[in-house]
Amino acid sequence: MTIDTGQPTSQEVTEPAQEEPRHIWRMVAIWAVLAVVLDLLFYFLVGPHVPPGDMTSAASENQDDFTILFLIALPVMIGVWVYMAYSIVIWRASRKGAPEPVGGPQARSNLGVQVGWIVTTTVIVLGLFVFGTVELVVNAGSGGGEGPNPIWTPTSASVLPVQVIAQQWKFTYRYPTFGGFESQQLVIPNGTTIAFHVTSLDVTHDFWAYQLSIKADANPQIDNVAYTTTRQAGSVTVRCDELCGLWHGAMFNYGSVVSKTAFNIWAKATERATAANTKLLPPFAWTYVPDANGADGGYYPDNVDPYSNSEVYGATPAKS
């Protein structure tokens, strides 16, 4: 038994009554109009509001990058959708007078189309790669965590280091240039390049300062550094962005970007006010080993039993 192709081979391909319209040119016309209009609409209406805003150098650069990627992506998507919609409308089997499809070698491949497709996608992709790399290098890591040995560093001469200590389920901040005091609240000065040193005391967290466009995993015993330069004063939302257990969803706090003067006043006042507390903290270090025995330079002071209900990190036992 021999299988036939399912199509009567003797059938004559009927000549279309009228001139076949130039489908490709029609599609290109629809695509061009839609792509230009929607790109312009996006650029002017949505572009300025693309997250995460422009509060810092990283934020505004990442906002630009997102906008540029979207301006490239939109025509690509519109192209595919226009082609598909056009095909479904014009070449659906239920439409009256639809011409019979023609098989054969010319329908199986087309060298020009294939080469054109591969070259176009390759050019777009390589362009995106070059663009992304340049943005990453020029913008000092774009606000992403660069690990303990950053290779893209800011050009600014003065960088304010701020340590972010994540633990289940809160963030605390230490300011090494102000005696290593600890704060529950992130306060940073405007117009300053900040180096966030993110580390963890227990599991992997992620420090996501949304408006600053900073995102860096907090790993135990890893000092993960991320840079940005603040440009506007305002408030900042900090969320944990890596699943860290039970209260991951509730692990967030707020910070603020304030003027340099206000920051200096706040930092010095807090340094003085918390001086007694700072003495009880482990000496400032880029990472801490949460070792219950106090060995390895110890995160818990020697005289504190970490399993005691009444003794917690950073506090001496209440005198009874």
Binding site: P51, P52, A58, E61, N62, D65, F66, L69, F70, A73, L128, F131, G132, E135, L136, N139, S142, G143, G144, D206, W208, S213, I214, K215, D241, E242
Partner: peptide, 14 residues
């Protein structure tokens, strides 16, 4: 592709 772009990834990752 947005996610693969490291600068944009800073916002959208996770």
């Amino acid at each position: 592709v947005f996610l693969s772009d490291v600068p944009v990834n800073v916002t959208v990752h996770g």
